[in-house]
Write a protein that binds this DNA or RNA. Structure first.
Lengths: 246, 246
DNA sequence: GCGATACGTTATGCCTCATAACAAACACGA
DNA sequence: TCGTGTTTGTTATGAGGCATAACGTATCGC
């Protein structure tokens, strides 16, 4: 034993544990592939196992039942969405808030359009068997994903670039804000800006939902792109986020 | 035969036809009840039949398969949504466009919150087996429901009360408008207003989706109500619809 | 009333979820 | 190196849903 100092390492992953984790990952990846392929959130253990060259009951060694797999996919979905937005924003100049907002919203949109099933899974109708556990892992993941958006408002506020929103009447109080589990916002953001952030999310989500579910299919892609850009320009204008000078 | 003049009557509904129609209606109503009860769009023929005191195979006399029942429910859903909005707007003063917009959006929201499953069915992720037939009955129904919203824009335009929208850069052309199958709009509405209408729909839909699927549950109902009102005020302001003086 | 049609039943086949019982592979200490 | 217990896979089995088939029975129109 050379490494007496092994204690800081978080539970050295044994060979078996790594293999198990790889299988878990493969199951989830296969499930997502099948969802994409069949354009549905309905995924069959049978199919996953067949693609993986296994039999269905083997999957129960890794997930107690279909709902548990679904929960795991939801967590991953939030992570993936949050990561997509984060990756899009990170390389940009911290001072260029319009660019960051544009990139963030485009990433949200692109993720949803690329993976409409995952999008439906995490932000659409709650799945039958699955109910979000109070304070469970999915709640945490959701918070992390959403904070990618809220951090833009915080940054704008801290830089003094956050204008008051178009709609001033405050209907969401500080108490409401705290219930949203994003405590860090409530101190920094004036209530009317927190409210504007929710409205911005609603605007973004509305467009992205309609598009991801095919309700804008009648439009040419270029027109959709332009419509989205103008929609986000409107969102920024209305919420007090900095907008590009042009 | 007293009624020789029967010909204008549209195919006198025979006793049998009425009974059949009643059964069809009961099946659909039972399906909707079960969807509501189980909070899912997944409905079992077995359950429907059990509730109705029948056996499952009997339902196949009325619907070829589950998808056909689903399609029928989708058509009904659009009709119901359109009717809900229409009923809310109809009694109001035709000149009071702010009130009509407020009532229409509230009706849209109330319908979705009362029947989140139906809402998901018609405007959420397309259901696995079901694909919207080109020019099929669901398309027509969808058009009718959406025209409840667009008619507000038309009315405003015809009364000369439609302001130019906040966002002027036109990204949706007349050609795009015509592809939306709402031909009557494209002559009356300037392109920027058609674009604004789409954005208004996206705003409305975004809020309503998030709320219907429980993502605003952390807010008090009163705060949600107020947030919605301010969101719709913003939508009207941004799109050029008349807003209440206050 | 009688023939045709519509409606509902039971019986059946196939598929999926899920569990049980069993077999092979592996890890690890004596 | 070998043996023992754990992990991971298999096949076998049962419950339940979709869908069809085959078969009575009620109802409608003439």
């Amino acid at each position: 034993m050379v490494a007496e100092l092994g204690s800081p390492l978080p539970a050295a992953p044994s060979r078996r544990e790594r293999a198990r984790q790889a299988t878990v990952d493969e199951i989830k990846a296969t499930a997502v592939d099948l969802m994409r392929e069949h354009a549905t959130t309905d995924v069959r253990f049978t199919d996953i196992a067949r693609v993986m060259g296994m039999t269905a009951p083997a999957l129960y060694r890794y997930f107690d039942d279909r709902d548990e797999l679904l929960s795991a996919l939801i967590v991953d979905g939030f992570d993936s969405l949050g990561a997509a937005v984060g990756d899009a924003v990170r390389p940009l100049d911290e001072a260029d808030l319009p660019a960051r907002w544009s990139a963030a919203s485009q990433a949200y949109r692109a993720w949803a359009s690329a993976e409409p099933q995952m999008f439906a899974l995490i932000l659409g109708m709650p799945v039958p068997g699955y109910q979000a556990p109070e304070e469970g892992p999915t709640t945490e993941a959701a918070k992390a994903a959403m904070s990618q958006l809220s951090s833009l408002f915080v940054a704008a506020a801290q830089r003094g670039e956050l204008r008051p929103p178009l709609i001033r009447e405050v209907s969401v109080s500080v108490a409401d804000c705290e219930k949203s589990k994003h405590d860090e916002l409530c101190d920094v953001l004036p209530p009317e800006s927190f409210q504007a952030m929710l409205q911005t999310w609603a605007m973004l989500h509305g467009f992205v939902s309609l598009e991801a579910y095919g309700h804008f299919d009648w439009m040419e892609p270029e027109a959709r792109d332009e419509l989205f850009r103008s929609h986000m320009r409107l969102a920024a204008t209305a919420s007090g986020l900095p907008v590009p000078p042009a």
